[in-house]
């Protein structure tokens, strides 16, 4: 059922490409691109690019979690810090990571650390905000119950605040994965010099209008995001059944 939308998208694409609504030379039909996706996945050169991109995304996500969750906990539970820092956060958050590519290339270079740093910057915000707001949503009766049984401040944070915030934080991580992936691929595409799907697409488009490869690379980037989202959703349902509507019972 959930794949109907995807199938329709490919059908529209096929029709648009075949009926010369758009120049078929540039927008190759899926019937040509999808077989290329399969052969590409078998090529060592592309496999290396794919692994480089996914690895950079995962590292960036890991760093973003390690920074944003503690920061969100502090911002969510210490109002003075929140007041002091929120303006800065709201100033930085709307800046697109892609707009920072020139600055990053000049200051960090064109290695893999550049795309990781930029992806961390993009992926921080959903995790930070979800962690922060999750703390606002904690039921005061949960806190009071824990305190009435002699649980201290740190115990309440560890045994009540963290578990009750965890599903929201996880949702933030899911949103951040897609952002990190997009930033990593964009950085590869714009700055070149580092192995990855983005660079593969860049070279394919520059080399001689090899649009099959360009589109196949793009489709694969989308599939990575799709797969990751499916996986994370499944994990969310398993880990946090209690937080789903009607507790996940059907």
């Amino acid at each position: 059922m959930s794949l109907i939308g995807l199938a329709c998208f490919f059908a529209v694409w096929e029709v648009a490409s075949r009926t010369d609504l758009v120049p078929g030379y540039y927008l190759r039909p899926p019937s040509a691109v999808l077989p290329r996706v399969v052969t590409l996945l078998g090529e060592t050169g592309f496999q290396r690019a794919l692994v480089a991109t996914v690895l950079a995304t995962l590292i960036a996500l890991g760093i973003a979690i390690a920074v944003a969750v503690p920061a969100g906990l502090v911002l969510g539970s210490v109002p003075p810090v929140r007041h002091a820092v929120m303006t800065l956060v709201e100033f930085l958050r709307p800046i697109p990571s892609v707009a920072l590519i020139p600055l990053a290339v000049v200051t960090i270079g064109t290695g893999p650390d550049t795309k990781i740093v930029l992806a961390v910057f993009g992926a921080l915000w959903p995790i930070l905000f979800n962690t922060m707001y999750a703390l606002d949503e904690i039921d005061p009766l949960h806190t009071e119950t824990a305190r009435a049984f002699g649980t201290g401040g740190f115990g309440v944070l560890r045994r009540v605040a963290l578990p009750s915030a965890a599903p929201f934080v996880f949702t933030g991580v899911r949103l951040s994965f897609a952002i990190a992936l997009a930033v990593v691929v964009s950085t590869e595409l714009f700055s070149g010099g580092t192995v990855g799907i983005g660079q593969f697409v860049l070279e394919a488009s520059a080399g001689g209008l090899n649009m099959d490869d360009v589109l196949a690379g793009t489709v694969i980037a989308g599939l990575v995001g799709l797969g990751a989202n499916f996986g994370l959703e499944w994990l969310h349902r398993r880990l946090f059944a209690w937080s789903l509507p009607r507790g996940g019972e059907r």
């Binding site: 039921d139 009766l141 949960h142 009071e144 119950t145 009435a148 049984f149 002699g150 009540v160 578990p163 009750s164 965890a166 946090f240 209690w242 937080s243 507790g247």
Partner: peptide, 17 residues
């Protein structure tokens, strides 16, 4: 340290996780 409380709203005083 030796006192227990039972609140009215069980659905909010039990920990769902």
């Amino acid at each position: 340290s030796d006192l227990s409380v039972v609140f009215q709203d069980y659905s909010r005083s039990l920990f769902p996780w």
